Computed example of a mutant assay.
Amino acid sequence: MTKDRIGRKRPKIVVIGGGTGLPVILNGLRSHNVDITAVVTVADDGGSSGVIRDYINVVPPGDIRNVLVALSNMPDVYKKIFQYRFNSNDQFFSGHAIGNLIIAALSEMDDRGIFDAVQELSALMKIEGHVYPASDVPLTLNAKFTDGTSLAGESHISAAGKTIKRVWVTSIDDVEPHAKEEVITAIMEADQIVLGPGSLFTSILPNLMISNVGQAVCQTNAEVVYICNIMTQKGETEHFTDADHVRILNEHLGKKFIDTVLVNTEPVPKDYLDRQKYDEYLYQVAYDFNGLRDQGCRVISDNFLELRDHGVFHNGTQVVSELMRLIGRPKSWYADELN
């Protein structure tokens, strides 16, 4: 644990993932006396991030941009500028966020790469904690489906409408992807590792499929907590229970490495979800307590639901309160409880 200005120990929490769920947890953690590190996926190939990646071959910046804003102490007006997305009809700028362009420019300057660029930008944005891209080079997500076919590219995988059997990541130069040493050190020195919330196959697993990241998560003495999704996702986790989510994670890393899983058991009101706006969500994830226990993890079930804008989200305050309650307990504590 690190220490704060008056000598109190600050728990080290590493949050791994991507998408819109990660900033929710990071915003909640900021109100607590903890040392935060966010490890962010770099396998996105859709939207503004995908276009920038195709044009100048840099790590897709969208998820990194959102995490930087979540941890930034800049005035709100600067955050708003950084997040501004062009709505003009210009063929290039339309749909791009200013922050994405700044991250891409910094990573291209002096060939410094995305990792060093994000560290420099973190200082400029007065980041509270650390933001680490999972890899310093763009990665491609690959998937094999249960029908034996394979596809490359996150957006293509999600749109295929097939059941995913397994995923893995590759780099453009066919060199085995590795995370920077700072990422591995953060995981090994952490008191708690938090996975999610986020898309199982396209936000969480792409990080864990980087070999030294997956190995570190399995070897760390930190408690590994998985925040299970509330809704199933089209093209990814159709008909999945919460136990299925944990099983897939464990199968990909070859061991039962999840210590604790947080699952929402509060029902989503019928007809509340705007299915046109949130068209990737299908049904509420079914609760399978016995299946979760079979995966060797501690189960914490509660009302983690937040309803707003006719969408279904995790209640960041409630989830973070549970994470703080769990912090610092050794892995042996979980083994004793399961026996």
Rank of each mutant, 00 (worst) to 15 (best):
K3G: 03
I6F: 09
K12G: 12
I16R: 04
I16T: 12
T20F: 07
P23K: 10
S31V: 06
N33Q: 06
I36L: 01
T37V: 07
V40P: 05
V42F: 12
G47I: 09
G50I: 11
G50S: 06
V51R: 15
I52Q: 01
I52D: 00
Y55A: 14
I56Y: 05
V58W: 03
V59Y: 07
V59C: 09
G62D: 10
D63R: 03
D63W: 08
R65N: 04
R65I: 01
R65Q: 01
N66W: 04
N66I: 06
V67G: 08
V67A: 08
V67M: 04
L68M: 09
S72N: 08
V77A: 11
Y78P: 02
K80I: 07
R85D: 03
R85M: 10
N87R: 04
N87D: 09
N89E: 13
D90P: 04
S94R: 11
I103S: 02
I103Q: 03
L106H: 02
R112N: 08
G113Y: 09
G113I: 11
D116V: 06
Q119D: 00
Q119W: 00
V131Q: 02
P133N: 07
L139F: 06
T140I: 11
N142L: 02
T146M: 03
L151W: 01
G153A: 04
E154I: 00
I157S: 04
S158M: 06
K162I: 00
R166H: 07
V167W: 02
S171W: 10
V175M: 03
K180C: 07
E181H: 13
E182G: 12
T185S: 15
I187M: 08
M188S: 09
D191H: 12
P197S: 11
G198M: 06
S199V: 05
S199P: 06
L200I: 01
T202L: 02
P206L: 14
P206C: 13
N207Y: 10
N207I: 11
M209Q: 15
C218F: 04
T220M: 07
N221L: 13
M231E: 03
K234Q: 13
F240G: 05
D242G: 14
A243E: 03
A243R: 05
D244F: 05
V246E: 03
I248D: 05
N250S: 13
D259L: 14
L262I: 14
T265D: 10
T265W: 00
R275K: 13
K277T: 08
Y283R: 01
V285R: 10
R293A: 13
D294Q: 14
Q295P: 08
Q295R: 14
R298P: 00
I300M: 12
D302L: 02
F304D: 11
L305N: 13
L305F: 15
E306M: 09
G311M: 10
G311W: 06
V312K: 08
V312D: 11
N315Y: 06
S321W: 00
E322R: 14
E322N: 06
E322W: 05
M324A: 15
R325Q: 13
I327P: 05
I327S: 14
G328I: 09
R329L: 15
P330H: 14
K331R: 15
W333I: 07
